[in-house]
Structure formats: structure tokens, C-alpha cells
């Protein structure tokens, strides 16, 4: 595994919110083209960890490099660095005053400085990858939740990131809309995208993940290939969590 240097390397990440100690020294390495699934009970710190990776949250201490860039250094242009880390949110966070095309094209124009025509051509291509080219002129309010989330994925991949972060991308969706989003994620995976996914979609984890990381109380409890972690969890804490999930 260790021939190529990892794309994401986070070491000893701590995060405090006031007196609350949310991350207690987490390490996370992600190799190129790897799909890492992060699971754990709510409050385990998995979303916070994800948000630290592109510095939407400022870690209290630790180090993070993405694609060789020190994300926490003062001298790093964080806005340029964030271009390499795409993020998809639980609540989509599409801009309601812009069309699907406008949502995808905004950063291409304003951050990458592309002309309107070029930005829109790329945005169309990105929408096509999530099979929504025919919805380019629709506003978020006119799209279903699943379609909105796929537009959000297009918004992120249009910037050609080196790694994609998914923060519970399907938890806000009605069950019948989850499939389309997971299909879009699977296609991304087949195209070789490196992905870190925080989610409760265990079926998807078993089928598609290279590695599953189980977190609890701000620490990584154990990690391994899905067959191993789901089939024979070593820690009591993991067994308890998985048992609870199964019952649902």
C-alpha cells in the first residue's frame, strides 16, 4: 500500500469547542484512489474530522497535508488549496438564487478566473457526469432533494479536486431518492476519485469502500477492510454500534 505517498495525511488532530473535547488526537491517512468510509455514533466527531480536512473547522492542534500542501500553514493560500478538496454537505447547501448551472460555474469563474463561456461549458460537463445536464437551467427549489445533492456533487467535481469529502450526503433524503446519489458516488469511484465518506449507508460501505474507519468519542477505535470490520469487529464498542445499526 505504501508505494505512493498518501493524498490526505492528518496527524494528531485535536479539536475543542469551548470546554468540549470533540477530537482527541485522530490520525487519518488516505491513499490515492482509495474510498474511506467513516462510521460511528452521532457525536463521535466524524463530521468535525471531515470539516477539519479542508479547514472549515480550525483544528486546535495537529497537522494536515492534502496532496502535499500543508493545510494549516499560515502561508498556504487556503482558497487555492480548497480547490483540491471537494465537499458535499448533508443539507446540499445549493445557492437558491442561482440555477444549477450557476451553482456549478460560480467558483470556476471567480476562483479559477475562467471566462463565462468556458466556466459554463465545464459546468455542463460536470452536470452531465451526474446525469443532470437537462436540469442546468433549473433553480434548486425546482429540483428534488436527490437531484439537488447531485448538483452539489457536480459543483465540487467541476473544480477537479484530488479528493472528495462527503458529509452524510444521503441523510437528508427520502429513501427513494438515496439510490441516485449513491449511483453518482459509485461512478465517481469507478473514475478513480479519492473519497472520504461519512455516512450511515452500511450497504454502500460494504459494497464500495476500500476501508472502513470506526470512530467513537473523538478517537479512531478501529479500522480495516469492510469485510473484516463488519464481519469480525475486534472491539466491543464497534460490535455494540454495528449491532444497533443492524436492528434498524
Amino acid at each position: 500500500m505504501a508505494q505512493t505517498p498518501p493524498i490526505v495525511a492528518a496527524h494528531g488532530i485535536h479539536k475543542h469547542f469551548g470546554t468540549l473535547h470533540v477530537l482527541k488526537g485522530v490520525d487519518l491517512m488516505v491513499a490515492e484512489r482509495e474510498l474511506v468510509f467513516v462510521i460511528g455514533p452521532s457525536g463521535s466527531g466524524k463530521s468535525t474530522l471531515l470539516r477539519c480536512l479542508n479547514r472549515l473547522e480550525e483544528p486546535s492542534s495537529g497537522s494536515i497535508t492534502v496532496d502535499g500542501i500543508d493545510m494549516l500553514s499560515r502561508s498556504t493560500d487556503i482558497n487555492a488549496a480548497r480547490q483540491r478538496v471537494g465537499m458535499v454537505f448533508q443539507s446540499f447547501n445549493l445557492y437558491p438564487h442561482m440555477t444549477a448551472l450557476g451553482n456549478v460555474a460560480l467558483a470556476l469563474r471567480k476562483v479559477q478566473g475562467k471566462s463565462r463561456a468556458e466556466a459554463e461549458a465545464r459546468a455542463r460537463a460536470a452536470l452531465d457526469r451526474v446525469h443532470l445536464a437537462d436540469r442546468a437551467g433549473h433553480f434548486p427549489g425546482q429540483l428534488s432533494g436527490g437531484q439537488q445533492q447531485r448538483v452539489a456533487i457536480a459543483r465540487a467535481i467541476a473544480l477537479e479536486p484530488r479528493v472528495m469529502l462527503f458529509d452524510e450526503p444521503t441523510s437528508a433524503l427520502d429513501p427513494e431518492l438515496v439510490g441516485g446519489v449513491l449511483a453518482a458516488m459509485r461512478e465517481l469511484r469507478e473514475d478513480g476519485m479519492t473519497m472520504v465518506v461519512v455516512s450511515h449507508e452500511m450497504g454502500f460501505a460494504k459494497a464500495a469502500a476500500d476501508r472502513v474507519v470506526f470512530m467513537a468519542d473523538g478517537l479512531v477505535v478501529e479500522q480495516g477492510p469492510p469485510a473484516e470490520l463488519f464481519g469480525a469487529p475486534r472491539h466491543e464498542r464497534t460490535r455494540a454500534f454495528l449491532g444497533q445499526i443492524e436492528r434498524h
Binding site: L56, N79, R82, Q83, G86, M87, F89, N93, A107, V111
Partner: peptide
């Protein structure tokens, strides 16, 4: 957050 995550 969404806007900042795309580098704006």
C-alpha cells in the same frame, strides 16, 4: 461553508 469549500 459551501462557498468557502469551493475556494471562494
Amino acid at each position: 461553508e459551501a462557498a468557502r469549500s469551493t475556494g471562494l
